[in-house]
């Protein structure tokens, strides 16, 4: 464990909690892409199957359970509890255009042709594109509530910190996970446009983000 990965995990946790609390307290999921949240729940499900097969640390196990519970709880809020506030017409990204290539690639490019390994690889590839329905929804509606932009900021920051973690681990322990690193770079690149808008618009106190 190093400070970059710990900070990254904390940013990830903060992002997920920000979103959950926003929906829970406002009793509304307006402007939130349910599709992205389903994809994140799928990412955690396919990545954390080793919860039952290998114990790494208390921290690792606790965080995996917390991420899984919050991810499914958020999906529940969107599609069941507050479904009347869900903007399904704005959440129109064709997720099959993500799932099919990601599933295909995870069979072609992986470390081992074993079920757990392919599912882990699928989760890594899927996570790099899972936010696209949400970003697409924001470009479609042309705006995002400031709390949603804070959620996206921490979500984008978490994988950027993981990139620093991989640089650190490469130099200190020679660790290099090519699939995770390449996907992490792609994932973070998708946030660059958002980061620019976030720093120039939201942090200038303009409240909600309105796209040009």
């Amino acid at each position: 464990m190093n400070i970059f990965r710990l900070l990254g995990d904390m940013c990830h946790l903060v992002a997920i909690i920000i979103l959950f609390l926003k929906i829970w307290r406002s009793k509304s999921c307006a402007g939130i892409s349910g599709k992205s949240q389903v994809l994140f729940a799928l990412v955690f499900t396919t990545r954390y199957l080793d919860l039952f097969t290998s114990f790494i640390s208390v921290y690792n196990t606790v965080m995996k359970v917390v991420f899984l519970v919050l991810a499914y709880a958020t999906v529940y809020l969107i599609y069941l509890r507050f479904r009347s506030t869900y903007n399904s017409e704005s959440d129109s990204f064709r997720v099959e255009f993500l799932l099919v290539p990601v599933a295909g690639l995870s069979f072609l490019e992986n470390y081992a042709f074993a079920p757990l390994e392919i599912l882990w690889t699928f989760s890594i590839y899927l996570e790099s594109v899972a936010i696209l329905p949400q970003l697409f929804m924001i470009t479609k509606t042309g705006e995002a509530e400031s709390i949603t932009t804070h959620y996206l900021f921490f979500l984008g920051l978490y994988r950027a910190l993981y990139l620093a973690n991989w640089v650190w681990r490469y130099h200190t322990e020679g660790f290099f996970d090519q699939i995770a690193v390449v996907s992490g770079v792609v994932q973070t690149i998708f946030y660059c446009d958002f980061f620019y808008l976030y720093f120039t618009k939201v942090l200038r106190g303009s409240g909600k983000m309105t796209l040009p």
């Binding site: 080793d50 690792n60 757990l116 390994e117 882990w120 995770a180």
Partner: peptide, 10 residues
């Protein structure tokens, strides 16, 4: 042990 079980990151 393949890389799968060595997954120590979240």
């Amino acid at each position: 042990d393949g890389p799968a079980s060595g997954k120590d990151e979240l």
